[in-house]
């Protein structure tokens, strides 16, 4: 339980931060694409007997690099390419599975997550990943914000847009696979997409949205783990459903706030 809480909090922090830039860039689908495609890496790992997650991380990094490379090409539809990666990865995984003899219960833990499977070794790896990610965000934050607004502007300002882009794509891909043990391939995109999507409905500035994203992501995962523990629900779906509930509440609040009556009561006199 202790390991699960620490691991979940670390993952929530980094995936929430990546979501701040992936969601406004309309790249939410990439989370699903990468996570599903990485199943092929997991299947290969199970087949050859190595560490399945390392294979998945390798594959995710390659896919992230590839998607970053093509992202500037306006003639290539990103969502279609991500969809192709998803289909290719899943199909490759299922075909590879046919070569593995016997029943493979690990596969289900990768598909749906297995929070109790997290060990201290995983926490150390996640901790290192979190520190590296936070340092990179600190260095690349301005460039990421400006490239999210307008790529050309970053070039005029002399910012290294490509470094920021590759960090975002490859970092997101690796972080997603880092969370596969927690939420599973199927639900991991929830941590990337929902916290910022909810925060952007409530927040009134980028800074407030980033803070709210972190609160929603960390609180959502930790409370989700407690709910799953108390009611004996599977952890991944418990966290996923809680995040969806937070999104619905945020959307409802945003809708109410946009009503003329509310506005007239709360608009500053200036």
């Amino acid at each position: 339980m202790q390991r699960a809480l620490v691991g979940a909090a670390l993952l929530a922090v980094i995936l929430g931060l990546f979501g701040v830039f992936m969601v406004p860039r309309k790249l939410s689908f990439m989370a699903d694409g990468i996570a599903h495609a990485s199943l092929f890496g997991i299947a290969v790992g199970l087949l050859v007997g190595g560490m399945p997650l390392l294979w998945a991380i390798g594959l995710a990094a390659i896919l992230g690099c590839f998607l970053a490379k093509i992202s500037d090409n306006e003639s290539i539809p990103m969502d279609a390419v991500i969809g192709i990666c998803l289909v290719g990865g899943m199909s490759g995984a299922l075909i590879t599975m046919t070569f593995i003899p016997g029943y493979k219960p690990e596969l289900f833990s990768y598909l749906f997550g297995s929070i109790l499977g997290i060990e201290w070794g995983d926490i150390y790896i996640l901790g290192t990943l979190t520190v590296v990610t936070l340092v990179m965000f600190k260095l690349q934050w301005r460039t990421l914000v400006i490239t999210t607004i307008h790529n050309d502007l970053s070039k005029v300002l002399g910012l290294k847009a490509n470094t920021a882009k590759y960090f975002l794509f490859i970092g997101t891909s690796i972080a997603l696979i880092g969370g596969v043990k927690l939420l599973g391939v199927i639900l991991i995109s929830a941590l990337l997409v929902i916290p910022y999507s909810s925060a952007s409905l409530i927040g009134k500035s980028l800074k407030s949205c980033v803070i709210l994203t972190q609160i929603i992501a960390v609180a959502g995962t930790i409370v989700g783990i407690f709910i799953s523990y108390i009611f004996d629900f599977p952890t991944g779906p418990a966290i996923g459903l809680l995040l969806v509930a937070i999104y619905i509440l945020s959307a409802t609040y945003a809708k109410i706030r946009s009503q003329p009556i509310w506005k007239s009561q709360h608009t500053p006199s200036d």
């Binding site: 969601v23 406004p24 914000v145 607004i149 502007l153 910022y196 952007s200 927040g203 500035s205």
Partner: peptide, 14 residues
């Protein structure tokens, strides 16, 4: 500039 709608950037922040 087509500012992304979900990036809640204020004038001061920009």
């Amino acid at each position: 500039i087509e500012f992304p709608k979900q990036l809640q950037l204020t004038v001061a922040e920009y």
